[in-house]
Design a protein around this nucleic acid. Sequence first.
DNA 1: AATAATTTTTAGTTTTGTCTAAATTTATTT
DNA 2: AAATAAATTTAGACAAAACTAAAAATTATT
Lengths: 217, 217
Amino acid sequence: MTYSEENYIKVIYHLSLVSPKGINTNAIAGMIESKASSVTDMVKKLAEKELVDYQKYQGVTLTQKGLHAAKMIVRKHRLWEVFLVEKLDFTWDEVHDLAEELEHIKSEKLINRLDEFLGFPKEDPHGDPIPDRYGQMIKVEKQLLSEVGLNKKVMCLGVKDSSPSFLQYLDKHQISLGSEIEIINKEAFDMSLTILMNGKEILISNKIAGNLFVKVM
Amino acid sequence: MTYSEENYIKVIYHLSLVSPKGINTNAIAGMIESKASSVTDMVKKLAEKELVDYQKYQGVTLTQKGLHAAKMIVRKHRLWEVFLVEKLDFTWDEVHDLAEELEHIKSEKLINRLDEFLGFPKEDPHGDPIPDRYGQMIKVEKQLLSEVGLNKKVMCLGVKDSSPSFLQYLDKHQISLGSEIEIINKEAFDMSLTILMNGKEILISNKIAGNLFVKVM
DNA sequence: AATAATTTTTAGTTTTGTCTAAATTTATTT
DNA sequence: AAATAAATTTAGACAAAACTAAAAATTATT
């Protein structure tokens, strides 16, 4: 698999998690920052290699082979993120782009050794599950903070959109994975929340709350 | 710099260390496993980017800019090798090909953090010096075991050709970096050596001795 | 159900890095 | 010094992966 083919497979995988039907050309083009016509070309090649099922105008789905390949790329991506944060002291907003490069290093042995070196972590620094060497991963029963009812106590599990600016916002307010939060007010007008964390009250917009995955405790 | 450009710069650097005059097209083609005509094309591009000086039919030399770029690639290669051997328990004959891939990961910050994580090593697992972030590296006053006189005591410093089969040969005979060796006989006919190591006598061919760098003690 | 709007595909180019084969330059030999 | 051999460069072609613009198919709207 080429660098580019791997990126397509990965993007199709991520889109599949959100909508499990056929993934359409434009959605892929949007994610990969290319044009629909380029996607059509690549998708034909992936179909020839039996990594996706594809019928003209009907979108694509991953085959079993494609699904496994995608999970292995995600595995590499997330393990490298753990390495960068835990061993090289990067912050969680810095690691995504680097992991995008590192995920293409081709060696099963390397990634399995890295997994072992890191102590077989189950989640990456953003709270996303890491597939094991067979593609198995834990399922986190998480929901968005914006969907949680009043007066509930929750624990922060991960983020939906892991853009650097959002992650930096969280750092600034000392919100990290494992932080415990209580929702003490919900403003009806703009759905903003007042939360209690480490004894401090913080006001949080609905947009922020809609980007933060939590677990009710 | 593209992946391919980096490989050319690195190869030209390695050839420059052996013969400091202009590096000819065929030598580069041999190392990179391509054809002379491809080399000509690439060398023109590198000259446009001012990474090499090039005049038709006269071979190439690295510019200051090219030399620095080459050292940074070598730095990455050798630091990743140390990481693989020291942290992930790879053997010294396994790491070269993996480091060939890892050396192209583009991040100054990553490589400097890795350097720190590894304790700023001065040499890679084969005894080759690692350039620091400014391109500086130690110079090892080493000579080939085949050139050392009779009855001298030497310490093993590194290898010339680091092919897996040679490295495995060394492992089999328990010769590693730092091993102390005494030359107790030199056969005039085939220049093979009898050496004393850890109290044991071993017979070594001239070809092996010509691949092993040592320092007289 | 016909038309409009959108999405997807096709056709034809472009760029990067490679190749082969032919032409040119340099080196070697007689 | 001329002839031959070897090395190097040029010219033209190709594959991968992208693009633009136009055509075709699907979906939405009236």
